[in-house]
Design a protein around this nucleic acid. Structure first.
Length: 685
DNA sequence: AAGCAATAG
DNA sequence: GGTTCTATTGCTT
């Protein structure tokens, strides 16, 4: 508010005073600016979900394990000294009887999480998620209504749960709204318990920051209200800046340089000096935060804006391993995307490299639009980041779909791109050939159809969807796969895309991927194309089911103004608990259908420069990376038969930055870094 | 608008 | 600074 130039004295006191005056002033005048914000925080969320799934666990010390750590544990385990984020070995030392449940697959947690959000939204639409186990709710209006509608005698009211800093408080005119908020918080906690079986804590205050901070005062399964007059006490009780939501590691490091380590330090630090280090906006924000001031609104989130999947590991150092891991991630992601019903417009690959000084940080990412071939594109992004000719050591891979777009009735080029059908029958290749016993390679066509056809095209007969989705039995290697082309009306445009690619390829092998395989495996695969391998089928237990709608109707996107009709249920109710299974058995092999027309002049030019005999879809950069003998072989090939493949365009000019360069040594002209359709040509021959 | 850093649970 | 698996927001370009 009044941030005049005078930088005298104590900014902290002034801030608090200002805040108080606002509150009091508004009380006198309108009081409308006083919000009532609730914060809900489920108790040891993952552990509760597992205890619901298996009630026998309730009486046992339970730890949820991800890799080698206990991410959370139930209260039985806590009583025995187990804590969050403890290593499994430490935890077992403390508590030998600890029962461990793997928690790397978040499906069940995610589903339950959205049920909680939906339940809250059924009482009031203003619900903001924070992670899987927390929700903010702005109940200001609801409180106001209840205050008026129910002719409430103040004497009939009492605070439910605790009131921060008090053993007992009378409800008076100044705090009625918070008192009503506490009643609502209790009602919602009760509703969550009776309908979902989950317990949790709640905080009641006048802003998000304070509601969150106060909600943890009494745990578990309790709630606390913060009266405005206790704000300074609450903030002062925090043991360090790390306890202030919104002040993270990086910010703390910078503050440390200024000698600021405690909440008080930052409260009393001159704002102008803070501005020098952080800039106007940030400086004001963090100083407000430590004073308990937070004007940020409760923003309903609607469906997620991105879906990602990742895995971490000790070491991945070959492109083959990268490929397999990405494939695994893509399977889960594409299934989730399918259930979501929207379409991703961008794909992002993120890696974490091992470095001795910085073992777990340092994530680097590249993204690209128009998701043409998922796996191939992933590998392309990978190469954009990592020079595979040099040794590398990754400890994490993440694949993310974002830029999600609702249904779309077939207008945008991207949209129609995704809905292209007409891929010929897919062929499955026995992956035993490359050390992946019992894995099944699905064609990219399968994947695309699984993801994008069922929900997005009303004309799609459910049956074909089903047959596509029930993988195994019906999808034996080389078994015919239902073809959709016919009914997908509008999508068929761009026939040029299909020609060459869809019909001439003998196998649904992604060229880029193929290229990465060792030579002997490449040869074996080529053999298999004519032999039809009999890979073990994956035994996915159930067929694909559309998620039971969880009354998502409530999710009227506030910000996604557009009709997000479909995406009906964005909570992923997993029809089956296949996540685990899925990890173990299928591998998706994307085929090169999706080659997209090249519309990028830059690319064309570069391509020309490369060689006039090269098909238009050949990426000069990729081409340049091939062994010399392969290059000449290809050129020979091209002179004889000119395949009609197209290449994804998009993304041409400026993709380079510092890191890029280092990742892609020579070849500064790798403008678009288009895909390697090169090998698909190779295969066709 | 895209890419990424920072933040959080 | 744990660690893991996400997801969002807001600089920066």
């Amino acid at each position: 508010m009044d941030k005049d130039e005078e930088s005298d004295g104590n900014d902290w006191d002034r801030s608090l005073e200002t805040d108080m005056m606002e509150i009091e002033g508004s009380c006198n005048a309108t009081l409308k600016s006083q919000r009532v914000v609730l914060h809900f925080d489920l108790d040891c969320f993952y552990a509760q979900v597992e205890m619901i799934r298996n009630p026998a666990l309730r009486t046992k010390p339970l730890g949820i394990q991800q890799k080698n750590i206990i991410v959370t544990c139930n209260y039985v385990a806590r009583d025995q000294g187990v804590n969050k984020l403890m290593s499994v070995s430490d935890a077992l030392e403390k508590c030998p009887q600890l029962v461990l449940v793997k928690g790397e697959d978040l499906t069940h947690y995610r589903e339950m999480s959205y049920k909680v959000t939906e339940l809250l939204m059924s009482h009031c639409p203003l619900v903001e998620r924070l992670g899987f186990d927390e929700n903010y709710m702005d109940v200001t209006e609801m409180v106001e209504r209840r205050l008026k509608e129910t002719i409430q005698e103040i004497s009939d009211l009492s605070f439910r749960g605790h009131v921060y800093g008090y053993d007992c408080v009378a409800v008076d005119r100044e705090n009625v709204r918070l008192a009503i908020g506490s009643v609502m918080a209790e009602e919602m906690r009760q509703a969550i318990y009776t309908t979902l079986g989950l317990t949790g804590c709640a905080g009641v205050a006048c802003n998000k920051l304070l509601a969150k901070l106060v909600s943890g005062s009494f745990k578990p399964n309790q709630q606390t209200t913060l009266l405005p007059q206790s704000t300074a006490e609450l903030m002062g009780s925090l043991t360090g800046l790390s306890k202030v939501p919104g002040i993270g590691y990086k910010t703390r490091e910078k503050l440390k340089v200024l000698g600021l380590v405690s909440v008080r330090d930052l409260q009393s630090f001159p704002l102008p000096d803070l501005v020098k280090e952080f800039g106007e906006g940030m400086a004001q924000r963090i100083q407000n935060l430590v004073c308990g001031v937070d004007e940020s609104p409760v923003t309903p989130a609607g469906p997620p804006q991105s879906l990602s999947d990742e895995d971490s590991f000790k070491k991945i150092s070959t492109p083959e391993e990268v490929l397999r891991k990405i494939e695994e991630l893509l399977i889960n992601l594409t299934e989730r995307m399918n259930k979501d019903g929207r379409q991703p417009n961008t794909l992002r690959l993120t890696v974490r490299r091992y470095t001795s000084t910085n073992r777990w940080f340092n994530r680097e990412s590249r993204s690209s639009d128009a998701v043409p071939q998922l796996l191939a594109l992933s590998m392309k992004l990978f190469h954009k980041m990592i020079d595979a000719h040099q040794p590398f050591h990754l400890t994490l891979l993440n694949v993310c779909f974002s830029n999600l777009q609702a249904k779309s009735s077939g207008k945008s080029s991207i949209t129609s791109f995704f809905s292209q059908k007409s891929l010929s029958a897919s062929q499955e290749v026995d992956s035993d050939l490359h050390d992946l016993p019992t894995k099944t390679l699905l064609s990219k066509a399968d994947v695309l159809h699984k993801i994008w056809t069922p929900i997005n095209h009303k004309s799609q007969p459910p049956k074909s969807v089903k047959s596509l989705i029930t993988p195994k039995s019906s999808a034996l290697p080389n078994a015919p796969v239902p073809v959709y082309s016919e009914e997908t009306n509008t999508d068929i445009k761009e026939p040029s895309l299909m020609s060459g690619v869809c019909f001439s390829l003998p196998a649904d092998v992604d060229p880029e991927v193929f290229r990465l395989l060792p030579d002997h495996i490449q040869r074996e695969l080529m053999l298999s194309f004519t032999n039809k391998g009999s890979g073990e089928v994956n035994n996915r237990p159930t067929e694909y089911l559309y998620p039971a709608e969880h009354s998502l109707s409530d999710f009227k996107q506030p910000r996604t103004t557009g009709t997000c009709e479909s995406a009906a249920s964005y909570n992923q109710s997993s029809a089956s608990n296949d996540s685990e299974l899925c990890k173990d058995h299928s591998i998706t092999h994307l085929n090169p259908e999706l080659i997209t027309p090249t519309k990028n002049p830059d690319f064309q030019q570069a391509n020309q420069a490369l060689h006039s005999d090269a098909p238009a879809n050949v990426d000069p950069y990729v081409f340049s990376q091939l062994p010399a003998d392969v290059q000449s072989e290809l050129l020979t090939e091209w002179r004889q038969q000119r395949p009609v493949l197209k290449i994804p365009s998009k993304h041409s000019s400026k993709t380079s930055n510092g890191r890029n360069k280092k990742a892609t040594p020579k070849n500064s002209q790798m403008k678009g870094a288009k895909l390697a359709v090169v090998l698909s040509v190779f295969l066709v021959s």
